[in-house]
Computed example of a mutant assay.
Amino acid sequence: MNEYRRTNATVSLLNYHFVFCPRYRRKIFLKSEVEQRFKALVYEVCAELKMEIVSMECDKDHTHLFLHALPTLSPADIMAKIKGFTSKKLREEFPHLQHLPSLWTRSYFVSTAGHVSSETIQRYVEQQKTRG
C-alpha cells in the first residue's frame, strides 16, 4: 500500500472510507454480475482520477469503499464522479435497474483515516460479507 502520495511539492496521505446505498436501500448487489460490474466501473473511475482503491466490498444494499485520494479532490467530488458514472452505466446495462431515475441516494458516509487506523478500516471493509 502506498502510504504517501506526491503531487508536485505536496506529499499527502488522504485515506477516505465511504459508505453509500442505492435509493430505497434496494438490494441491487444480490445479483453477482451487478456487483462485479459495479466494482469494475469504480476501478475505472478511480484510475482516471488517479486514486488507489485499498479495499472495496458490497453487501446486499450498500457498499464500502476505502481509498487513497489526491488532495485536489474533495470527498464530495469523489462521490459525485463515482456515483454519477456507476449509476449511468449500471442503469444502461441492467434492464432491472433502468426504471430508476437515479441509482444512489444523495447521501453518503465518509470518514478520514490516519496511518494507524487504515489497517483496521481495511479489515472491516473486507469482512463485510462474512459478518453475521
Rank of each mutant, 00 (worst) to 15 (best):
G132T: 11
A69S: 14
H68W: 05
E57Y: 03
E92D: 15
L41R: 06
I53L: 14
E57P: 01
C46D: 03
N8L: 09
E35L: 11
N15Q: 10
I53V: 11
K83I: 12
F66S: 07
K83H: 05
V54Q: 01
L14D: 00
Y108H: 13
H99Y: 03
L100A: 07
M51Y: 01
V45W: 06
S107G: 15
E126W: 00
I78W: 01
M1A: 05
A80M: 11
D77A: 11
V42D: 04
R91Q: 05
Q127N: 15
L67H: 02
H99C: 08
W104R: 02
Q36N: 15
G114P: 02
K83M: 07
E44Q: 10
P75K: 00
F66W: 07
R91N: 06
S102F: 00
R37E: 15
R26H: 13
V45D: 07
S55D: 11
K89L: 08
S118G: 13
V110G: 06
N15C: 08
A9T: 08
V54T: 09
A69W: 05
K50Q: 15
M51H: 04
E92F: 02
L13A: 08
C58W: 03
F94Y: 10
H17Y: 10
Q122A: 12
T10D: 14
N8P: 01
I82L: 14
K83G: 12
H64D: 05
T86I: 13
L30P: 03
Y124G: 09
G114M: 08
I78P: 00
Y24W: 14
V19L: 08
A80L: 15
L97M: 12
K129F: 01
K88E: 07
V19I: 13
I78Y: 02
A76V: 10
F29Q: 06
K31C: 11
M56C: 06
Y108A: 04
R37W: 09
C21N: 04
P75W: 01
E126V: 06
R91T: 01
K31V: 13
E92C: 12
L103N: 12
K81C: 12
F109V: 01
V110H: 00
S55N: 15
L41A: 07
Y24Q: 12
H68N: 11
K31R: 10
P101K: 07
S55F: 10
R23S: 02
Y124Q: 05
E92A: 11
S87R: 09
I78N: 00
V125F: 04
V42L: 04
Y16K: 01
F109G: 00
H62T: 10
I28R: 07
F20Q: 08
I53W: 06
I28H: 03
P101L: 06
Q128E: 04
H115D: 03
P101W: 15
H62A: 07
F85G: 06
V116G: 04
